[in-house]
Structure formats: C-alpha cells, structure tokens
Amino acid sequence: MTLTAWQQLLDTATSVPGVRGAVLVSIDDGLVIAESAMDILPTAEVAALAAAIVQRTLRVSAAASQRPPRSVRVSGDAGTLMAFVADGPLWLVAVADPAAELGRLRLLLGDVAAALR
C-alpha cells in the first residue's frame, strides 16, 4: 500500500465526527508513519504514548499465554485514545472527543485498520 493510500484512509478516519486525528504508528519505536489530524493534536506525542501502551498490553497477553491483542482503548473523562493493529508493528491510533459515538467509531476504525494492511 502506498503512502498516498494510507493518507486517504487516515483522512477517512479523521472525517468522523468527534475524531481529533488519526495516526499510523510504528509501535516498535513510537514514531509517526503517517497522520491526519487537527493542528491541536500533538501527533508525535500521541504516537509515542500510544505505542508505549500497546507495547505493555502485548506483554500482558504474553504473560497470559494469549495471542496479541487487536485493539486497545483508553478512555478518560475528556477523550479516548483508540488503537487498532494495522499491519505487523503498524497500528492505527485515533483520538476522539468524549461526545464521539465510540461504538460506531470502533467499527469504522477497525475497518480502516484492516484496509491499511
């Protein structure tokens, strides 16, 4: 898949109401591969912090002798960080407002992550 195609899919994710931005992240090093986000979203920090969370959940799965997770969602009072495995070490990470429809968003981001493969 080309970088342009990635970009289009990320734009699709960001166009959902309530989504502040979507970032394709390499969880091995916590760096941004591609992004589509509002200016206020610090995508480099999102990538670094999301990668750290995903790495930790991978270790939980290993400790429980289970296969790696497909998605991780961290919710706070003022927003939600969602991460979906895309392709190997690449994960789709999105940040959403509290008012976003998380159920619909979860399905849509799952589809986008699958399309990124």
Binding site: R67, V72, V74, D77, T80, V95
Partner: peptide
C-alpha cells in the same frame, strides 16, 4: 484526556 476511566483490550 482527563483522568483515566477504563482500558479495553480486545484480542
């Protein structure tokens, strides 16, 4: 994002 409320992991 405010104080954390939950983490959901799907595998």
């Amino acid at each position: 994002l405010g104080p954390w409320r939950q983490v959901i992991v799907e595998g």
